[in-house]
Amino acid sequence: MLSIFTRLADWIVYSVFGMSPESRLADGLHFFVEDTTKIFALLIVMIYLIAWVRAAVNIERVRDYLSGRHRVFGYVAAASFGAVTPFCSCSSIPLFLGFTQARIPIGTTMSFLITSPIINEVAIVLLGSLLGVKFTVCYVAVGIGAGVLGGAFIDLIKAEKYLTALAATAHGSTVATGHANPDPVKMSFRDRHEFARDELKTIFRRVWKWVLIGVGLGALLHGFVPEEFVVEHLGAGQWWSVPAATLLGIPLYSNASGVIPVAESLLNKGLPVGTTLAFMMSTVAASFPEFMILKQVMKPKLLLIFFLLLLTMFTAVGWIFNLINF
């Protein structure tokens, strides 16, 4: 089914533009046309369908579900919820405070916040269509695993003492929860359609540029960076290449939609899976704007710990996947 996009690209590049299949430019352009058309088509379908299902889920119910649960259950459930709920970094602070107020442990909240940006329907579409099912499953497993372990660690060091006054107040207060429940639980066909249509518009408007930039970069790499270069310098899984990739990913602030096409290109050029995963995770999960926002609830010490924690986790993931030669 997806081969129609290959044929579409064949037609545009070789027939409409009349380019020779041997030229590098044609190769890069073909990659660009095929990937953008395929991704955009899949995104439109998937975002709409997922939003249709998600229309009745709201964050208040997630919070009520998570409060008062056993911790281990909490980490796994919070990371899973993080995976299915859309994430907007401007909401992360009210969400953090709301969870804290409901006496949900900080670690559980962090499980949610770590996994949420890593896994979403856009990432799944891109991974599935560009990198295949096996890689997608690994990515999802690692994303949830990182949330669970990260959350457990944050509780282990008793991070409550590193919260800012704002968050500590929320932690100590006993505001009644559940009094704001604006979304009707029962949704009609029309409500769901309207919700899904709005979600599609909002998400598409946000990610289309990233997809273009990502695929553009991927196409450049694809057409112009010789495979030998990547294989020779990074392909043997040199131990330092993983932490280097993780570090490189942090200042690169992108979301999953921008980084995945680049990862596809790198993988095709022979970059090991572990190194690629580490790079993707750190690009998506850790960013300076996000840290600036978290500064409102976390003291600098906790922010630093959080930063190092992400760095360590992603590096470990990279090493493990390279070691087992996945």
């Binding site: 907007c88 401007c90 009210p94 929320a170 929860t177 604006p182 409102q296």
Partner: peptide, 15 residues
């Protein structure tokens, strides 16, 4: 103001 927003029990902005 975050405290004011919290007082409404809102966790996902905008509300």
């Amino acid at each position: 103001d975050l405290n004011a927003i919290m007082a409404f029990g809102v966790m996902v902005t905008p509300a």
